[in-house]
Every structure is written in structure tokens, then in C-alpha cells.
Amino acid sequence: MKPPRAPLFLERKTYRRRRLMDAARILPVVGFVLILLPVLWSGGDEGLSTATEALYLFGLWLALVVAAFLLSGPLRKALHPDPDSPPDPATPPRDEDGR
């Protein structure tokens, strides 16, 4: 059974929403990379002190919370899009073989 094809191009509003979803997906990846940074710092003997690392870590934490807060409002609306808008190609329909 062939899935219905998603539209190739989108109007401005839908396009914005798609990019917002992209941002929401990228945020945790960026966060993970930044959280792993202290691992690199503390490698050598002249590694940063725990106090500096703590300041960095908690600052980063707060920044992630703020970023998630900014994204959450528009994403909440995207959870239940207008019924007449095209289906969500963020998760393209796949057949049983995963094609």
C-alpha cells in the first residue's frame, strides 16, 4: 500500500512551523554536546576547577530551560494543527519494510 504523498512545498506559516520542529529536535543534541564539554576541559593537569565547571554547567542548564521555554509555546500550537493543513511529514509514512 503506497502512502499518500506529502506536499513538496509549503506555505510560509507551515514552513515556519516545520523549522521550529527542527529546532526542537536539534536542541537536545546541542545540549548533549555542550554538557560533554567539561569532560574535555578536565583532561589535563591545568584543568578548570570544580567551581568554574559548576558555574558553566548551571549557566548552560538555565540557557537550555529558556530555549525550551521559548520553543514550547509555538510547538504547543503545532501539536494540534488545523485539520485542513497537510499531514505532518516530520514522520513520513513508511510501509512495513521501513521504506
Partner: peptide, 24 residues
Amino acid sequence: SGLEFATIYLGPTLVFIGWWWILR
């Protein structure tokens, strides 16, 4: 162990700010 305790809360933080992936 110093800052290591924070990892227990950073992991869930990442999962929640990435809610669009899995939690949704």
C-alpha cells in the same frame, strides 16, 4: 564525587527539552 551528581538530572533535562523526539 563533585559535579557528577548533576548528570542524574542533566539526562532527564535533555530528554524533556527534546520531547518532540520521543516523549510526544
